[in-house]
Design a protein around this nucleic acid. Structure first.
Lengths: 232, 232
DNA sequence: TTCCTTGGTGTACAAAATACACTTATCAGC
DNA sequence: GCTGATAAGTGTATTTTGTACACCAAGGAA
């Protein structure tokens, strides 16, 4: 059991916004709190940073215990340390976000918390416990900005995807600022030459099947190294 | 005297990269360490976060004690928490940078540290104590990016400045990526209408005197609110 | 066979970025 | 007071990039 006295001076946590993309919607993984404070409210997955643990490692651990996933995109965003942000004492938290492929994915974390976890679409991710609304806002804003500099799409999409899925992903992230024109989007994304046409098509859809693509990781890395601009 | 036992579990600090611009050079304010570890090496100004102090307030305090300045541009960048980053124990630090007008400015801080402070041009700001090289890199990278989205120039320049000074500032920040074309720079910056022509001229220079400008703060704020793009 | 749904494609116009060279105003030194 | 040195100031043509816009194609369902 967590005893606040043990962290009397000040406690250190990480909180993690885990983004996923499913059915055309951007979602985050939240946990329903079982005890006070903020009982029954949704909160971000987070945990204390162990004395011998690097910050990034703590964020990875939180993600791993909850989802069983490893080696995902993870980025530190900002540290929230308002004196009264936690009702039980001084708790300073480092906010991270990570990008995860939801598709065909069950929560198989080791933590008992994973029972209480749920993917919530970002429009419904309001009224969170603590200052987690603020943390979500900061992370989402960072993602919106980051997506203009790096092709993060392939962290969120399944290995094979259609151009329409990719466009919907961008719209979900950039919403409501941008309604993207289909032809211009395709022209631009294809001109970057980071997509590989798999010469396969969707199956079992009641309309013309779309072609499937995958990301070309090598070319993507070359672009990143060259300080490449990904404005959509 | 600082006793490490008092912060046994883990200690919390802020470190502040204080940028200034003088004689065409971008500089940061460093402190020569007087005691171990890293005696006689240059280090970033920093301090512990007090139990009842917000993070931003701690960063402002560090700046104020050192320079006597208030109300300057201050931005949190990233938190550095590697287990072994501090030889005496676990110290997690939140990095900030601030932008300061050096011009005609003497260090008049209340802290005894201000005796040991010096403006160092960024090319010479290497081999700092602790992981401060890394922190400097992160803050400088952030400044380079930020300057493309917000007209931060007027935080670093004196109230009245010439277009050449402004261009030199941009070159110092964006170096070595960009050599800026004089005519294109002027065309762009003037088309933004955030500069006011003061109808005054430089005095005492051995060449054609340049016109003086100041920033129009209201228009700048309107631009920022509208999510304005400042690519140079 | 028809209908419904989403996939896929090109062109014309506007806006923005870039490349580039000479004249002007002042002070210093003779 | 003339000359030289220095940085200030200025415009245009070209290329690149962004934007607006509408119809036919392919497959499954009825």
């Amino acid at each position: 059991m967590f005893n606040f006295e043990d962290y009397a001076k000040s406690a250190f946590t990480v909180d993690n916004i885990i983004f996923g993309f499913d059915q055309g919607e951007l979602k985050i993984l939240l946990i329903k709190r079982g005890e006070p404070p903020y009982t029954n409210q949704w909160a971000l997955p987070g945990n204390f940073v162990y004395p011998n643990e690097d910050l990034d490692a703590a964020a990875e651990r939180v993600l791993g215990e909850l989802t069983g996933l490893k080696d995902v995109y993870l980025e530190q965003v900002r540290t929230f340390g308002e004196v009264n942000r936690h009702p039980l004492g001084r708790v300073i938290t480092v906010a991270y976000y990570s990008l995860v492929k939801i598709k065909g994915y069950n929560l198989k974390g080791t933590s008992p918390l994973s029972q209480k976890a749920k993917w919530v679409s970002i429009e419904n991710a309001t009224n969170l416990a603590f200052d987690h609304d603020q943390i979500f806002e900061a992370c989402f804003r960072r993602l919106k900005r980051r997506v203009r500099t790096r092709p993060l799409g392939f962290e969120l999409l399944p290995r094979k995807f259609t151009l329409t899925e990719l466009q919907q992903l961008y719209e979900a992230i950039l919403q409501p600022e941008k309604k993207i024109d289909k032809r211009n989007f395709r022209k631009k994304i294809l001109s970057m030459k980071i997509l590989v046409d798999l010469n396969e098509a969707q199956e079992g859809v009641a309309h013309r099947p779309a072609k499937l693509y995958k990301f070309d990781k090598k070319k993507y890395e070359k672009f990143v190294a060259e300080g490449f601009n990904f404005e959509i």
